[in-house]
């Protein structure tokens, strides 16, 4: 336990769930990885073709992306290392077991105790047998809430092959007569719609992973 806490770089005031620490420890064994991303956006007021990008992760650094196209990447959901959730001091609350995506998962609340954390509470669903994340729900302080579902092709994998990120998104506000024909009917429809939910579907392929030996 102490070893895990040292690994995390934090000294917690309250005990942290041991399964979460095991998962974090497993994720931390990954030194770096690259993968090809395929993104598809499902937001009612956005029409976008399927996009491709490369995702590059190096331990201790921010995830980087590169693409020849213009791509929109969700701010949450692509942090497979859990770094953004466990960056500052936090406590965990065990919520028991729950079925998620057809799997019996351990549910844990992560509550940050440091004001610098950009989320107020996060819930994670963990497959404790396979030591990996199945889903998470993050309530951020500024950017609303995100729900992320992870899918894996094989039991031994810790990095997901498919990720679905669901979020709430406000309707866009476009200046009048900007970028094309301004139709009153459309604006009425947009006004009535209010905030909407959206989703981004990510498919990863061709993982190149470097781990601690």
């Amino acid at each position: 336990m102490l070893f895990s806490q040292v690994l995390l770089g934090n000294v917690f005031a309250q005990p942290v769930d041991p399964d979460l620490l095991k998962l974090k420890s497993r994720l931390d064994s990954i030194q770096s990885f690259t993968t090809q991303l395929t993104l598809s956006v499902d937001i009612s007021f956005i029409n976008m073709p399927v996009k491709k990008a490369q995702m590059m992760y190096t331990k201790g650094q921010k995830v980087k992306f590169s693409s020849g196209d213009f791509v929109m990447l969700p701010k949450r959901g692509l942090d497979f290392s859990l770094n953004s959730l466990l960056e500052y001091d936090f406590i965990t609350v065990d919520r028991g077991m729950e079925m998620q995506d057809g799997k019996n998962c351990k549910v844990i609340n992560i509550i940050p105790t440091d004001k610098r954390a950009d989320f107020s509470i996060a819930t994670v669903w963990m497959d404790t047998r396979l030591r990996r994340l199945v889903a998470s729900e993050i309530n951020t302080k500024k950017d609303g809430s995100y729900t992320v579902h992870f899918q894996y092709n094989q039991d031994q994998k810790v990095l997901p092959d498919k990720v679905t990120v669901n979020f709430e998104i406000e309707k866009i506000r476009i200046p009048i007569n900007f970028m094309g024909k301004d139709t009153d009917i459309d604006r009425k429809k947009m006004r009535a719609a209010g905030s909407k939910t959206g989703a981004i579907y990510l498919t990863m392929s061709n993982y190149q992973i470097k781990t601690l030996l």
């Binding site: 992306f65 791509v71 929109m72 969700p74 701010k75 950017d143 998104i169």
Partner: peptide, 10 residues
């Protein structure tokens, strides 16, 4: 509005 939720590449 989208900037709150997304990073843009390109």
């Amino acid at each position: 509005n989208l900037k709150q939720r997304f990073y843009f590449e390109g």
